[in-house]
Design a binder for these strands. Structure first.
Ligand SMILES: [Mn+2]
Ligand SMILES: [Mn+2]
Ligand SMILES: [Zn+2]
Ligand SMILES: [Zn+2]
Lengths: 139, 139
DNA sequence: TTATTTAATTGTAACCATTACATACTTGTA
DNA sequence: TACAAGTATGTAATGGTTACAATTAAATAA
């Protein structure tokens, strides 16, 4: 995704495209690894030595509000972010910690027991072992 | 659930039934409100003035290991616990913070895209507004 | 029962992700 | 350029969780 496209995209979602915001969003779209704040920080600080973590928290919170990213709470200890806002599930490997996207074919329509609720977010999380860690464990 | 039943139940899951463990498990089965550590603490401290939070953390961690409770991470800030270990979803109201059980009729079998993964846990979370808060907001 | 061993509990301090806030800097606009 | 509004920064505070050494309780053996 080109810088100008990102700038345009952010403007479309009424986010003023400051340099830092552009870089954070760019990181999120180019790295679909569901990074934590610290991971984003460690990556970006190499290019932007003045970057502050508070800026990251502010920026990511803004992204959530404006709906250009979602928050993933599959990890008990830290928040993770995803620029893919389409409905999909996640799998976390308990050994390597990696988080995988899970394409869901059947959207859960459990509305039978949810009459009267207004649903704004849906999350599906799986936890276990990923293929690589499984293989490594069996050897 | 009777104290003796709880004691027996814990023993069955190779958990030594100390006084505190019994009380914590009893609280979980009698209060299906998915409490945080602090909520359990505030309730139990009234009867057990010497109770320590570290004991709660130790006990709850043990319950998770032994499989008599599950951890719910629907809340970004604190962990919540549930003695109902059967597969079911949860809904959190963004206004009042209450967490509701959602009975799921269709167990997600998304295994098509999950060939080679070993799944140990599945969680389904919804967030939005509960009926009461919706009604209050509309008036 | 008592003595002995083992496990559970406690209190304190440390840890670490997140938040609050005041200051400094940038950007857009006139 | 000057001004106002919006952004970013650094530091300190907050709050849930964890580490750990000391104390107490429970289980077992004598
Ligand atoms: Mn994803
Ligand atoms: Mn539940
Ligand atoms: Zn793995
Ligand atoms: Zn509510």
């Amino acid at each position: 995704m080109d810088i100008n496209d990102i700038e345009h995209f952010l403007r479309l979602h009424s986010i003023r495209p400051s340099h830092h915001r552009i870089r954070v969003y760019q990181y999120l779209v180019e790295n679909r690894n569901h990074p934590s704040v610290d991971i984003i920080y460690q990556e970006l600080i190499r290019d932007i030595p003045t970057l502050s973590k508070t800026t990251l928290y502010n920026t990511l919170e803004l992204f959530l509000e404006k709906g250009v990213a979602i928050l993933i709470t599959i990890d008990e200890n830290e928040r993770r972010y995803d620029a893919d806002t389409s409905f999909h599930g996640h799998f976390r490997c308990n050994t390597c910690g990696q988080i995988f996207d899970i394409r869901l074919h059947t959207v859960p329509r459990e509305l039978e027991s949810m009459e009267g609720f207004e649903i704004n977010e849906s999350h599906i999380y799986f936890k276990g072992l990923c293929p690589k860690c499984l293989e490594r464990g069996n050897s």
